[in-house]
Amino acid sequence: MLENIQATVEAWPFLARGLWVTIQLTVLGSALALVLAIILGLMAGAPARALSVPGRIIIEFFRGTSLVVQLFFIFFVLPQFGIDLPGMVVGVLALGLNYGAYAAEVVRGSIASVPRGQWEATTALSMSPVHRMRRVIFPQAWALMIPSLASLMVHLLKGTAIVSVILLQDFTFHLDQLRRVTDTTWAYAVVGLVGYFVLALALTLVMNALEARAKHRLGRGPSLREILSPTPTAKDSLSTAGRGF
């Protein structure tokens, strides 16, 4: 036990470096996934078939092929066509494409579930399709999609572990190094478990905050400041009193 702790402390600089790689992959991969999800989700939900059909094909392709295969493809096959990308870029690209395709379905579904009356009101006010999406529909869909996006992000975080197959030295890679000097149980079941759990928890807290903010903007639920303030003020209890007359 003591040796294990000792070894972990000694390995900490490496583990920290691995954690940093995992965090980068998660944040950059999620950012790319979100951008792709919004583009593909809007395409797939568009009334014009010239947009929706390609959107659907891209989504189904990247959802239907496994992350490992996509990773190998970008890492080993693309260089043969002269496209040689650094490991980090390959990791972010594969994670972004794979999870972006899943998230695109979330985006499309959330947009479709904004009540019909909202769409009709924008027509009655002569808004253009872009204006309608940007100012009315998307802000409402955003609040609906955050919980599902959050759970996909946690999946993505855990998905980053497989990038060690393309020799990226992430947290899992360094856990494996640690295993050699300690033992499997310690490295994976204690250090690994705690490491990934803390990262996932941090991610979930950030997404919960985003969700609370998005809902507050739609007039549902208290503001973030009210949630975070330790003592509720009189103003807070007023604003949470709901629809009084």
Binding site: Q118, A121, L125, S126, M127, R135, V136, P139, Q140, R217
Partner: peptide
Amino acid sequence: QFNLFPNMTVIQNITESPIHV
């Protein structure tokens, strides 16, 4: 069903289209 935009205040609901359309 009124169909006000819940992501905007009352005044924003009213001024959105006069400004942007």
